[in-house]
Design a protein around this nucleic acid. Structure first.
Length: 271
DNA sequence: ACTGGCTCCTGAGGGC
DNA sequence: TGCCCTCAGGAGCCAG
């Protein structure tokens, strides 16, 4: 699924092709995504120039001279540039037709993604306004996590996945980061000492950067035979590996549900 | 203010 | 081989 590194890789790949182009038309074939695609989108965007493609958390921000479109890929979304005349398949729900004969095409079988209008001040949009710092930015560090965790009884892993605490850390990366940091995902967040939060912050940054460095590969062959992106299949230490030996110590990896999400951990490396 | 549970949807995978 | 059932998963939302 598109996690932050995949979204960022998509952004980097698409941005140079979009900047300076005009949107000729918007074709919506399936309006029913996570939220309905706004009815007036085509009217707002037709004829407007694209200024930039940015990212906040796992949201893509398509900035145009008329305002900003918010895109989220959900679980199964992907974006690609295609010849505008290419017939779409049944999961390709929306095209932004460009003035060069191509279209930015959104495919999203599970439809957990979103295409929304965020106007001229997207940072004030309800979906963006409350987000915590970017995990790869300067405001994300152990002290931030420690401060936000004070008094919280929620387990460390769902805490890390809370977008208000830090933006865009999904299940897979939270799981892997806690393995690298040697922290038991079930621990109440409020119980970790600052030095451990520093380790967690470092591990989140490290795992995201590593995935980002491999991002090109991930995007090119996006899903392997087991339905997992290529990078994950090779690099994941514990995620999805219940019963397999820990790569560090050989102990059997365990799985538990935390906040309705599967968490995998090594009971001897993570305490 | 927190916490946990629910929800949307499809395709993968297991059982028979 | 094929059908049916279950379930994962991002993250907003809501009830308690």
């Amino acid at each position: 699924m598109p996690e932050l590194p995949e979204v960022e890789t998509a952004r980097r790949g698409l941005a140079p092709h979009l900047a300076g182009r005009r949107i000729a038309a918007v074709r919506v074939r399936q309006r029913h995504l996570r939220w309905p695609v706004p009815a007036g989108l085509g009217r707002r965007l037709a004829g407007t120039a694209i200024e930039a493609l940015e990212r906040r958390a796992k949201y893509l921000l398509l900035r145009t001279e008329a305002g900003t479109v918010l895109l989220h890929l959900g679980m199964s979304g992907s974006l690609r540039l295609v010849p505008a005349a290419l017939p779409p398949d049944r999961h390709e729900h929306l095209d932004l037709v460009l003035d060069d004969g191509r279209a930015l095409r959104l495919r999203d079988p599970r439809r957990f993604g979103a295409v929304l209008w965020a106007g001229r001040r997207p940072e004030g949009h309800p979906l963006l306004a409350g987000l915590g710092p970017e995990p790869l930015g300067p405001h994300f560090h152990g002290e931030h996590l420690h401060r936000r965790a004070r008094g919280r009884r929620v387990a460390v892993k769902p805490f890390l996945m809370d977008a208000r605490v830090v933006a865009g850390v999904g299940n897979i990366y939270a799981t892997e980061a806690l393995f690298r940091a040697g922290v038991d995902p079930r621990l109440p967040a409020g119980r970790l000492r600052p030095v451990r939060w520093e380790r967690v912050a470092g591990a989140v940054r490290e795992v995201l950067e590593q995935a980002l460095a491999a991002g090109g590969t991930t995007l090119r062959d996006f899903v392997d035979a087991r339905g997992r992106p290529g990078w994950f299949a090779r690099e994941l230490a514990v995620y999805g590996r219940a019963g397999e030996p820990c790569p560090r110590c050989g102990t059997s990896i365990r799985c538990v549900r935390l906040g309705q999400r599967s968490s995998y951990w090594c009971p001897s490396c993570q305490r």
